[in-house]
Structures are given as structure tokens and as C-alpha cells.
């Protein structure tokens, strides 16, 4: 989405990844969330889990060093960190349903201020693409969503209520967009950080639910 205002895709992933706490087991979904494993979050004991049973993977493999039988949720060839393990799908989703994932990070079409989100089916579509999203959304301890703040035609993806079929209800804790970092509060969104070069009024105008702002609103600090 070059040319859009605010943060680029990797910066949005970085913004979400910086919220991870030491020791968390983190599941990254397809798309921008997989880019969180590229974020330099210092010397922390974060364990990345992928739904296909990889526990403890690291960055995307360098050109020429790929193991074609080692992929993340997005099918990218990744590397293993020391201590990594591989399990089958039933055990991997046992980890998910059993509540052993501290946070799952997913992309979405829409997120509501009540913490609902929609990411599997478009309007009028027959069927959809669920993957592991419903298992993760229902069972991870926290759900973070990364998405573009607005659609291509400018309508907000942060809404009072989703009008697409939801993936799960009331589960989203944090939302990272190209405009900043937001928390669904039930009645609106609380902005925790704002992207450089944007004003609160611009963000408010682009948000489909009431927007409040933390005191001394921090500007997103960009890596490198």
C-alpha cells in the first residue's frame, strides 16, 4: 500500500511487536503479522508459534539458505531459533485451544470498538478463508489486529460494529494501523500512539467510532 498515509507494513508490524512482553508465546497470522518476527525486539524470550506446528521460529530465511520444508503461517521459509520444536496440527491447535498462546496477531477487514473482528468472509461472498483464525481468536489469551486504517475508498476499518461476518466477538485487545495504536474500549477506540505526520483530527475523521486519546499522546517511534 505504497502512497498511503502513515506507517508502512513493516512499521505497523513493529508497532504491534513492541507491545509483546518478555516470555510471551506469540502466534503470527498470514500477511503483515508474520512481519513481526522480523522486528528487532532486543534480547527477549519471545517464542513465535505458527499454526502449522512450528514452536520457536525466527526471521525469514536468507536467500539461498531456505529449507523448503520449513514455513510459517504465510508459507514463507523461516529459520528456527535454538530450542525450537515441531509438533503436528492437532498438538499445535491443542496449544491454541488450551490457552497456551499469550497473543495472536492477525490481519482483518474490520474491527469494532467492542472487540469484534472480521477477517474470513467478504460481503456477499460464498464461503471464505478461515484457516486457523477462529481457533486462535476464540482461545488465545489476547488478540492483536494489524490492518490498514481505511479501505481503498476511504471508509474506516475501525467501526462501531462490524458489518461483515465476524471471526470472534469481544476478543480484540489492541489494534495497530498505519495511523497508530488503538485499544477497543467498548464504546470507542482509545488511541495510545499516533503515526508521525498525522493529527488527532485526521485520525478521528478516519475512524468509524468515537476516538479518545491518552494524555501526552506519544508519536510512534520508527526503527532505524
Amino acid at each position: 500500500m505504497s502512497g498511503s498515509k502513515g506507517l508502512n507494513r513493516q512499521q505497523m508490524a513493529d508497532l504491534a511487536a513492541e507491545q509483546f512482553q518478555n516470555g510471551w508465546v506469540v502466534n503470527l497470522g498470514v500477511g503483515i503479522p508474520t512481519m513481526c518476527s522480523n522486528t528487532d525486539i532486543g534480547d527477549t524470550d519471545i517464542v513465535y508459534h505458527s499454526e502449522n506446528g512450528i514452536i520457536g521460529y525466527g526471521q525469514v530465511a536468507a536467500e539461498g539458505t531456505e529449507d523448503l520444508n520449513l514455513v510459517n503461517a504465510g508459507g514463507q521459509n523461516v529459520t528456527l531459533k535454538p530450542g525450537a520444536a515441531v509438533v503436528h496440527h492437532a498438538d499445535s491447535f491443542g496449544i491454541i485451544r488450551g490457552g497456551h498462546i499469550d497473543v495472536t496477531v492477525m490481519g482483518a477487514y474490520q474491527v469494532s470498538c467492542g472487540g469484534d473482528f472480521a477477517n474470513w468472509k467478504l460481503k456477499g461472498q460464498k464461503g471464505g478463508g478461515i484457516g486457523g483464525a477462529m481457533d486462535l481468536a476464540a482461545c488465545a489469551k489476547r488478540v492483536f489486529i494489524i490492518l490498514e486504517h481505511t479501505t481503498r475508498d476511504g471508509s474506516s476499518r475501525l467501526m462501531a460494529a462490524c458489518d461483515l461476518p465476524v471471526t470472534a466477538r469481544g476478543v480484540v485487545k489492541l489494534v495497530a494501523t498505519n495511523f497508530g495504536l488503538f485499544e477497543p474500549t467498548g464504546t470507542g477506540f482509545l488511541m495510545h500512539q499516533i503515526a508521525p505526520g498525522l493529527t488527532v483530527d485526521q485520525v478521528r475523521a478516519a475512524t468509524g467510532a468515537p476516538l479518545s486519546v491518552v494524555d501526552n499522546l506519544p508519536v510512534v517511534r520508527l526503527a532505524g
Binding site: M134, D135, V166
Partner: peptide, 28 residues
């Protein structure tokens, strides 16, 4: 849902005819 798909086959192979899961509750 992917985890349900995996568990349905695990159950078939393990002699479990059905199971309850939190996945997809509240959805279409």
C-alpha cells in the same frame, strides 16, 4: 476452522465420535 479440521481427524483415528470446541462459537 483449521484446528477443528485437525481435531475431527484426530478424533476419527482415536475412536472419539464427536467433541465440543470453543472455536467458531458466535459466528455464522
Amino acid at each position: 476452522p483449521q484446528g477443528t479440521l485437525a481435531e475431527r481427524m484426530r478424533a476419527a483415528g482415536a475412536g472419539i465420535p464427536a467433541f465440543y470446541t470453543p472455536t467458531a462459537v458466535g459466528t455464522e
